[in-house]
């Protein structure tokens, strides 16, 4: 227990130190003229600009727009991915029927469909949500599928020996046994959904972090652009950490999970 806490602390401390290290390196590299600030600005300028954007409300507006699309796309991907994954994991026929789509999704870049979505849903929020939904769907579906499909046969047989019916085995053995793998899928999905939202916003939006990045990027206002980039990175780390934490809560029963 104490060792576990220490391990967690240690990881946190090391992670934080390396982040600080990069920021310091960034500042020094620019101060010593090693890198031209025109391309990447400096931490101190970005911090100052952050305060400006924070006070004029544009940070809140952009973060809210991005999070709105993120929550919708992740929520939809979670619902659809888990339902389809469970069905495909339990019924081999469903898996075979869905397989071509999955291969298609793995081999074709999702953003390539951007124009199609624009044609169907128009510029803006619905298209952004659709793209990010597709980004997040695959890992959630694939993990749920493998979790259910790889249900421990010995456990299923033990359940049957006590007279369990297929539905009992599904609810009491397959589903609870898959929760940790599903959570891992969701954690991957969180990262993918955020990426999806930001990438789609780069192409066309009226607000959001991705929109701000392209907007200032095209104006060559590197410092203003960096504010949004840093926020995206911090958001991504934060959300993934939350999911990792939830994941560790759900698989504490796993023998190899005490880390």
């Amino acid at each position: 227990m104490i060792a576990e806490l220490f391990y967690r602390r240690q990881a946190l401390v090391l992670g934080t130190l390396s982040m600080i290290g990069i920021v310091v390196f960034w500042q020094i590299a620019v101060d010593t003229g090693f890198i031209n600030p025109f391309f990447i600005s400096t931490p101190s300028q970005v911090a100052a600009e952050f305060m400006v954007q924070f006070e004029d409300g544009s940070v809140a507006t952009n973060v809210a727009a991005t999070l709105y699309c993120f929550v919708w796309s992740l929520g939809l991907a979670a619902v659809v991915g888990i339902i389809l994954g469970v069905l495909a994991g339990w019924f081999a026929d469903v898996e075979s029927a869905l397989e071509p789509f999955i291969w298609f999704k793995y081999s074709a870049p999702t953003v390539a469909f951007y124009p199609l979505f624009v044609a169907g849903l128009g510029y803006g929020t619905p298209t952004i949500i659709a793209i990010a939904f597709l980004f997040a769907l695959t890992p959630i579906y694939a993990n749920t599928l493998s979790g259910i499909k790889n249900t421990d046969r010995d456990l299923a047989r033990a359940a049957r020996s006590f007279g369990a019916r297929p539905l009992d085995i599904f609810l009491r053995v397959a589903l609870p046994g898959s929760v940790p793998v599903m959570m891992a899928g969701l954690r991957l999905g969180v990262g993918r959904a955020l990426t999806g939202v930001v990438v789609a916003e780069l192409f066309g939006a009226n607000a959001g972090l991705g929109y701000a990045i392209t907007y200032y990027g095209q104006l060559m206002q590197t410092t203003k652009m960096m504010v949004s980039i840093v926020i995206v990175v911090v958001l991504g780390v934060l959300l993934t950490q939350i999911l990792s934490f939830l994941e560790s809560k759900t698989d504490s029963w796993r023998v190899d999970s005490n880390r």
Binding site: D154, F162, P176, G177
Partner: peptide
């Protein structure tokens, strides 16, 4: 229900 098995392999639900 007239029979119950103790298996050779570990068969407890780990969760």
């Amino acid at each position: 229900p007239d029979r119950a098995v103790v298996f050779q392999e570990a068969s407890l639900l780990p969760w």
